[in-house]
Simulated scan of single mutants.
Amino acid sequence: MMPRTELLKDIIADLRMAASFVTILPVASSKPAGDGAVARATWALPVAGLLVGLAGALVYKMASRFGLTPNLAALLALATTALITGALHEDGLADTADGLGGGRTRERKLEIMRDSRIGTY
């Protein structure tokens, strides 16, 4: 059985890896990730997503308390999550739309989706 301190260090390392994978926040170790580090940290990806969502919810709640309209508060919350994630999900959605709307064959659609020079980001 693993000692508690080692287990806690592994949990923290996984959380940092997951947060660095889905955000632009500088939370990961300065040394390169070892083999299988991202795969080992996949359990922590929902936790990282929850933290990003909570940040957006907090901004929405604060904006509502300051009397902003629900639409404006939602826009600020969306902008917050886009800033934290580097617009990762928005870019993926745009790539999907580009691919589905831009290619005639399956191969061309996938090529468009994979091309980083095409799209909104």
Rank of each mutant, 00 (worst) to 15 (best):
Ala13Lys: 07
Lys9Gln: 15
Ala57Tyr: 08
Ala87Leu: 14
Ala28Cys: 09
Pro46Asn: 10
His89Leu: 12
Gly99Thr: 05
Ile118His: 11
Gly103Ile: 02
Ala82Cys: 14
Leu7Gln: 15
Glu90Arg: 07
Asp98Trp: 09
Arg106Tyr: 13
Thr42Val: 11
Thr85Phe: 04
Pro70Trp: 09
Pro32Thr: 10
Leu25Glu: 06
Arg117Trp: 06
Tyr60Lys: 08
Leu88Cys: 11
Thr80Ile: 04
Val59Tyr: 00
Gly53Val: 05
Val38Pro: 00
Arg106Asp: 14
Met2Glu: 15
Pro26Gln: 08
Leu54Gly: 09
Thr105Asp: 06
Ile12Val: 13
Ile84Phe: 00
Ala28Met: 11
Leu76Asn: 01
Leu45Tyr: 09
Ala77Cys: 01
Lys109Asn: 05
Leu72Ala: 13
Ile84Thr: 02
Ala94Ser: 12
Leu68Pro: 00
Gly99Tyr: 03
Leu54Ala: 12
Asp35Pro: 12
Val38Gln: 05
Tyr60Trp: 12
Leu93Ser: 08
Ala48Thr: 06
Trp43Ile: 00
Ala79Phe: 12
Gly99Met: 06
Ala41Pro: 04
Asp91Phe: 04
Ala19Trp: 03
Glu107His: 05
Ala94Cys: 10
Thr80Asn: 07
Gly36Asn: 08
Ala73Gln: 04
Ala39Gly: 07
Pro70Ala: 10
Met17Ile: 15
Gly86Ile: 02
Leu72Ser: 11
Ala79Tyr: 06
Gly34Pro: 00
Thr85His: 02
Pro3Ile: 12
Val47Trp: 02
Arg117Phe: 13
Leu51Pro: 04
Phe21Lys: 08
Ala55Gln: 08
Ala19Tyr: 03
Leu76Arg: 02
Ile112Phe: 04
Pro70Asn: 10
Leu72His: 08
Pro70His: 07
Asp14Thr: 00
Ser29Phe: 04
Ile24His: 09
Asp98Cys: 14
Gly56Tyr: 00
Thr85Cys: 03
Ala55Ser: 15
Leu75Asn: 03
Gly86Gln: 07
Thr96Asn: 05
Pro32Tyr: 09
Ala28Trp: 03
Arg108Lys: 15
Leu75Lys: 06
Ile112Thr: 07
Gly102Lys: 06
Thr42Gly: 03
Val59Cys: 06
Gly49Ile: 08
Arg16Trp: 01
Gly103Ala: 06
Ala33Asn: 04
Leu88Lys: 03
Ile84Trp: 00
Leu58Trp: 12
Arg104Trp: 13
Asn71Thr: 11
Ser30His: 10
Gly56His: 02
Ala55Asn: 03
Leu68Trp: 08
Arg65Lys: 14
Ile11Leu: 14
Ile84Gln: 04
Leu7Tyr: 09
Arg16Asn: 07
Leu83Trp: 13
Ser64Pro: 01
Gly86Lys: 03
Met1Ala: 15
Ala74Val: 07
Ser64Met: 14
Ile12Asp: 11
Ala79Pro: 01
Leu25Val: 08
